[in-house]
Every structure is written in C-alpha cells, then in structure tokens.
Amino acid sequence: MSLDKDQVQHIAMLARLKLADDEFAETVQKLSRIVAFVDQLSQASTDGVTPMAHPLNAIQRLRADVITEADDRDHLQQNAGAVQDGLYLVPKVIE
C-alpha cells in the first residue's frame, strides 16, 4: 500500500513536523516504500496470538511514596530556549 500526499500531510501534522517541499516529495515516496515493506506482516497468521509489548514477562515494580527530588530549576532551565520568572515560554496559547 502506498501513501498519498494528503495522508503524509496529515501524519506530518500529527507528528508536528514541518517538511520542506523537496523533502516532502521524497518523504511521500520513501514512506510508501516503507509501508509497502511492512505490509508483509499481513501474511503472518496470528489468530489468537497474544500481542507482545515487552520482551520479558515481568511485572511493574512499585516505588515507595517518598519525596526524593529537590528543586533544581535553575540548573534544569539552562537548556531551555526561553524562560521568564521560572516559567517556560511558548507563543500565546488561546483557549
């Protein structure tokens, strides 16, 4: 199965990726190729097979309800592109 431009546009929107025009054309072609490749899976007979989400059959460990993290804001915000008064800044969000 191949993907059309609208589908690729929609996926790019969901994934929040802006693609340049030449990049977009190549992406349509390569994604189609990849999807066609993974389409092989449809041949496998998997009736009644339990999906495998984890390689090990282990169960979740539970943490004690204890505060272990101290404030490290100034250090952690050194990687941020825009902060003010301890807040991370984004273009105004209108609700």
């Binding site: 993907l3 589908q7 690729v8 996926i11 790019a12 969901l14 994934a15 929040r16 990726l17 802006k18 693609l19 340049a20 990049e23 190549e26 992406t27 390569k30 994604l31 990849i34 999807v35 993974v38 984004v90 273009p91 105004k92 969000v93």
Partner: peptide, 26 residues
Amino acid sequence: LFDLYCRSRGEGFGAEVKRRIMTGTY
C-alpha cells in the same frame, strides 16, 4: 505554538528520524 512545534522539530530532526517518526505515527 503550532509553528514552534513544527519548525523546531522539522529543523532539529534529520530526514531518517523524521521518516521513522512519521512511520510510527502512521
């Protein structure tokens, strides 16, 4: 906001990473 997301990610990631993100999204 949408532009911040799409361009930061569009510029920050290379072609193969974008392809895999899009394959996964799909």
